[in-house]
Design a protein around this nucleic acid. Sequence first.
DNA 1: AAGACACGCAACCGCAAACAA
DNA 2: ATTGTTTGCGGTTGCGTGTCT
Length: 249
Amino acid sequence: MVRKPSRVDAGTGENKERKGLWSPDEDERLFTQITLHGVSTWSSVAQLAGLRRSGKSCRLRWMNYLRPDLKKEPISKREEEIIVSLQQSLGNRWSTIAARMPGRTDNEIKNYWNSRIRKQLNAAAKAGRATSDSAEEPSAIAAGEKEESMDNADAAAAPPLPIPARFPVFACQLLVNGGGGDQSTTTTTEQQNSWSEDSEASVGDGNMIHDFLAFDELDYLAELLMDMPGVMDAWESELYSSNSMGSLN
DNA sequence: AAGACACGCAACCGCAAACAA
DNA sequence: ATTGTTTGCGGTTGCGTGTCT
């Protein structure tokens, strides 16, 4: 979707800071400036590129649009699952979530989530009015509502471990891999990243499991697996290790 | 065909943390 | 230790486009 730069205040005053959509020329200036000279401070980037933009605006444009490593394709089903599960375990920490999803920006994920939530709420409003509190809600809607309540409570203040959508898959992996825990519990960055790609499924990985089980089946499995000895311990360390990765670039 | 509505996305705003002087 | 500046983040807004009526 290409939009004309037509937003309010396209920079009428000579010295006035420009706001609104970026023109192709501005993009080019910014891109050239950063690729050739890098970034010392963002305000200096704006100056050196001859842009009447705030450093803040330049940063945002670069991060969300110009960066060469950004994925241009729409968010895949697999990525959606990752977003949902990370959102459930981390809350609205979009930058942390984005850091685990190469090529995706916090803004993109946030937008995706917000529109998704809006959809779910609309759907829930339509379907749910008559049969409120129905036990057979689609898991996606349930997930959305769960997160809303989590938002209010704030993840840090909630002692019980969150059970995101990834848990059933994780638990299945644990079983398939022999329950040793070692390889399953040490979820590496590469592993996380591989979930975002539509890579080939190998025995015991999340893709394979999802090929055989629907979401509602996974939910059911989750309930059973939570009671199995050792599973929650493994999940806890999995959660811990993945949470602590958030600080990585 | 045209207006209304919904959706997706880009970008702004305000705040807080980090950093420098 | 204090103050000012910069950066990063999450929430929110508003525009353009697609779809529906």
